[in-house]
């Protein structure tokens, strides 16, 4: 089931600003590989779920996945063929506000080739350009 807040203070939100670069959630916190956004967008909960499924299928239930964004913003829409006015529409779907630099997904416990392929498949489900990044490995241990 797509991600959704359990409880909210207000059902409807204003659109807000999407300008600037991400200042939080910009580094790999849990896994070894990550998918980083290069553009700004509202990523819907169904898009996040599609990415999760394709990653999970490609990893064949090995390794671990972290979803670093959460759709906590509701987007309203008016019913079709309705006249203007009569108040704001009903909440239609939920989105996560993503800015350039935000980490979207993280993976660990799998070889890099599988991680790259999983992230490529996930990137196909997203409306923005993204890039694959990996955590720096200590050099002293690399030589060992």
């Amino acid at each position: 089931m797509p991600l959704l807040p359990k409880r909210v203070k207000y059902r409807k939100t204003q659109r807000g600003s999407r300008k600037g670069f991400a200042t939080r959630n910009t580094y790999i916190a849990f896994g070894a590989y990550a998918l980083q956004a290069l553009e700004r967008a509202w990523i819907t909960n169904t898009q996040i779920e599609a990415c999760r499924r394709v990653i999970s299928n490609n990893m064949k239930r090995k390794g671990k996945t972290w979803i670093r964004i959460f759709p906590d913003k509701s987007v309203t829409a008016r019913p079709p063929e309705t006249r203007m006015g009569k108040g704001k529409g009903a909440p239609e779907y939920w989105v996560a506000v993503v800015k350039p630099g935000n980490i979207l997904f993280e993976l660990d416990g799998i070889p890099e080739s599988i991680a790259r392929e999983s992230m490529r498949l996930a990137a196909n489900k997203l409306p923005i350009r993204v890039r694959f990044i990996k955590r720096a490995v200590p050099v002293a241990a690399k030589a060992a």
């Binding site: 089931m1 959704l4 807040p5 359990k6 409880r7 909210v8 207000y10 059902r11 909440p91």
Partner: peptide, 14 residues
């Protein structure tokens, strides 16, 4: 396995 997508619940308003 994820639950059925049939009925998408709306969040509870505090």
């Amino acid at each position: 396995e994820a639950a059925d997508e049939g009925d998408v619940k709306q969040p509870e308003v505090i």
